[in-house]
Amino acid sequence: MLNGLFDPATVFIYLPRLLSKLPVTLLIVVTATLLGAAGGMLLALVRLFRTPVLNQAAVVYISFMRGTPIVVQLFLVFYGVPWLLDHVGIDINRWDKLFFVILTYTLNTAAFKAEVFRAALQSVPSGQAEAAYAVGLTRLQCFRRIIAPQALLIALPSLGTGLAALLQDTSLAYTLGIIDVMGQVHAIASGTNRMLEGYVGAAIIFLTLSVALEKGFGRIEANLLIKRHH
C-alpha cells in the first residue's frame, strides 16, 4: 500500500496504462466526428430545404439530442436500438458494446453539427448563389464551389469547440463498460483503491489533446483567412 491520498510518482506509473487505451477513445472521437459530420450535413440540408415531414422529424431529433444528457442517450441506444430491431427480426444483442457507444456519439454529434452547418450555410449571402446560377453553375456545383467553402470557414470555430466537447463527452462511455482512457481509470481505481492518480493522469491526457486541438484549429483557420484576406 502506498502512503497518503495522492502520490505524484504513481501518476507516471499509471500514465502508460492509460495511454494504451487512448486508441479506443480516439476511435470513438474520430468515427463519431466523421460520420456525425455527414449526418449533420444531411440534417442541415433537410432543415434548409424544409423537406416536408423530414424537416419536422429533424427538428424533434435535434432538440432531443441537444436536450438530454449523453449518459441517457448511451443507455437508450444500448438497450433501445436492439429492442427496436428485435421487433423487425434483427438480432444485434451480441454486437460489441463499442458499436453502440460509437453510434450514440455519432447520433449526438450529428445533431450538434446540423445546427452549426445550418447557421453557417445560411450566413452565406444568397446573392452569391444567384450569381452562380446566372453564370451557369448547377445547384450542386454552386454548393460545392461557392457555398460550402465559405460556410466551412464560418463553421470552423464551432467545429473545433464541438470536437473538444466530444472528446470530453467520451469520458462517459465507461458507463457501458468500455475500456477507453476513462474506463481504464476506473479499472485501476477499483483494483488498487487509488483514485486520484488515475484521474490526474486522465486530466493530463485530455488537457494535452484539447490544447493540441485548439492550436490545430486556430492554425487551420488562420491559414484559410490569410489566403482569403478577410
Binding site: Q128, E130, A131, A134, R145, Q150, R228
Partner: peptide, 12 residues
C-alpha cells in the same frame, strides 16, 4: 449574363 445591384461576387 447578369450584373447585380449588390455585385454578388464570390467572396471565396
Amino acid at each position: 449574363a447578369m450584373v447585380f445591384q449588390n455585385y454578388n461576387l464570390f467572396n471565396n
